[in-house]
Amino acid sequence: MKPFQLTYTAKDSGLLREALHDWGISKRTLASVKYSGGQILVNGNEVTVRHVLEKDDAVTVIFPNEELGEGLIPEAGQLQIVYEDEALLIVDKPPLQNTIPSREHPAGSLANIVANHFEVNEIPATLHIATRLDRDTSGLVCIAKNRHIHHMLSMQQKGKMMKRRYDAFAHGKFAEQKFVITEPIGRKDTSIIEREVRQDGQFAETEVEVLQEFDGFTHVELGLNTGRTHQIRVHLSHIGHPLLGDDLYGGKRSGISRQALHCKSLELVHPVSGEPISFTSPLKEDMEQLIYAKR
Rank of each mutant, 00 (worst) to 15 (best):
N225T: 06
E285M: 09
M161I: 03
V180E: 12
A107W: 08
K178F: 05
S254F: 09
I81A: 06
L133G: 04
K93W: 00
S191R: 07
F4N: 06
K252L: 13
K160S: 11
E86S: 13
L140K: 06
D200N: 15
L266G: 09
F203M: 14
E194N: 14
I40S: 01
K284S: 01
S254V: 14
Q212T: 11
E209W: 09
Q157H: 13
S273Q: 11
H262S: 10
L153E: 01
P94I: 03
L222W: 01
F179K: 14
K264Y: 00
P106D: 11
R228I: 02
T226P: 07
Q199A: 14
G77A: 08
E221Y: 08
S237C: 06
T206R: 07
S32Y: 12
Q80F: 09
V47G: 01
H148F: 10
L211T: 10
D200H: 12
R195K: 14
D247F: 05
E18C: 01
P74Q: 06
L133P: 08
L96F: 08
I232Y: 01
I185F: 05
H150Q: 13
I277M: 15
I90H: 08
R50Y: 02
Q97A: 03
F169D: 09
A31R: 15
E176M: 14
A125L: 03
L72R: 04
D200S: 15
L248E: 13
L243P: 13
E54P: 00
V269D: 08
Q202E: 14
R132F: 00
T29P: 02
D134Y: 03
A175N: 13
K93R: 10
I291T: 12
V272Y: 09
G108P: 04
A175C: 05
V33P: 08
A260H: 07
K178Y: 07
L6Q: 15
R17M: 09
L16W: 04
K93Q: 03
E275R: 09
F4G: 02
I40A: 02
Q289E: 12
Q202G: 04
L133E: 00
G159R: 11
E183R: 15
Q289C: 03
L88I: 13
T182L: 09
E66W: 11
P94G: 07
L140I: 04
E183A: 15
M161C: 02
S273E: 08
A175Q: 15
R132Q: 12
R195Y: 08
M287A: 08
K264C: 11
S154W: 02
E84F: 00
L30G: 07
R258H: 12
N116L: 01
F217Y: 04
L248H: 13
L16N: 09
E119F: 09
E119W: 03
L266H: 04
Y166D: 00
K27I: 11
L243I: 04
A204P: 06
E54W: 08
V141Q: 04
H128N: 06
V47D: 00
P74Y: 12
I73T: 14
G108A: 03
L20D: 07
M1Y: 01
G38L: 10
A19G: 10
I123Q: 07
T218M: 03
T226E: 11
